[in-house]
C-alpha cells in the first residue's frame, strides 16, 4: 500500500469510528452505570491493529478521541476515552501479536473491551480523586465481556470482508 493510500484509509477509518460512536449514543443504555457503552469504535481499532499495526492503531485512537472531544465532549471526555482507548489498544495488540494461536478475534475483542472499561475507571479515580468508584469494577468487567463479545462478532465479519477486499485490491493492482 502506498503512503497516500494508507493515510486516506486511516482517515476513513477514524471517521468510521466516530460515526460508530455517534450511532452508539442512540442505543439506550440498559444499565444505569456511567461509562457503560457498547464501544462500537473498538471494532475500528481492531481492524487497524490487524491490518495496519500497533502504531497506526494508537494514531487512530488518539485522533478519534481528540476529534470527538472537540466536537461532542470536552477535555474530561477526552481523558476518559483516551485512557480507555489506549489501554485497550495496547492489550489487544499484545494479544494479537503474541497469542493469536490461542485467541480468536472475539476473545481479543472481549479483552479489549474489559481493558477499555478498566482504563476509564482508572481515569475516573485519578480525576475524581476518590477510590470509591472502584466499586463499579466488577460490573464494568462483566459488562466488558458482554460488549466485547458483541463487537468481537462484528469485527470478525468485518475483518473477513476487509481481507477479501484487500485481496481483490491487490489483484487489481497487479493487472
Amino acid at each position: 500500500m502506498i503512503k497516500l493510500h494508507r493515510i486516506v484509509l486511516l482517515a476513513l477509518l477514524v471517521s468510521q469510528a466516530m460515526v460508530l460512536s455517534f450511532i452508539e449514543t442512540f442505543i439506550p443504555n440498559p444499565v444505569p452505570i456511567p461509562g457503560f457503552k457498547l464501544g462500537l469504535a473498538n471494532i475500528v481499532t481492531m481492524l487497524v491493529i490487524f491490518f495496519f499495526g500497533f502504531g497506526d492503531a494508537v494514531l487512530v485512537v488518539v485522533v478519534r478521541c481528540a476529534l470527538s472531544a472537540i466536537l461532542f465532549g470536552g477535555p474530561v471526555v477526552f481523558i476518559f476515552s483516551l485512557a480507555g482507548g489506549i489501554l485497550s489498544t495496547v492489550v489487544m495488540s499484545v494479544l494479537y501479536y503474541r497469542m493469536r494461536e490461542m485467541l480468536s478475534i472475539i476473545g481479543i475483542s472481549m479483552a479489549g473491551a474489559v481493558a477499555h472499561n478498566a482504563g476509564q475507571l482508572v481515569a475516573a479515580v485519578v480525576l475524581m480523586g476518590t477510590l470509591s468508584v472502584f466499586s463499579y469494577l466488577p460490573v464494568l468487567l462483566i459488562a466488558g465481556l458482554v460488549t466485547g463479545f458483541i463487537t468481537g462478532v462484528c469485527s470478525r465479519q468485518l475483518s473477513k470482508a476487509f481481507q477479501k477486499w484487500r485481496r481483490s485490491e491487490g489483484q487489481n493492482r497487479e493487472k
Binding site: 472475539i106 476473545g107 468487567l141 466488558g144 462478532v153
Partner: peptide, 26 residues
C-alpha cells in the same frame, strides 16, 4: 466454532477477577 479455547479461558479469568473484587468489597 467461533470461539477458541483461549477465549473461554480468558472470559473465565476475567469473570473470576470480577467475582473476587466484588467479594473483597463485601
Amino acid at each position: 466454532s467461533i470461539l477458541k479455547k483461549g477465549d473461554l479461558l480468558l472470559a473465565a479469568a476475567i469473570a473470576l477477577i470480577a467475582l473476587a473484587v466484588s467479594w473483597s468489597f463485601k
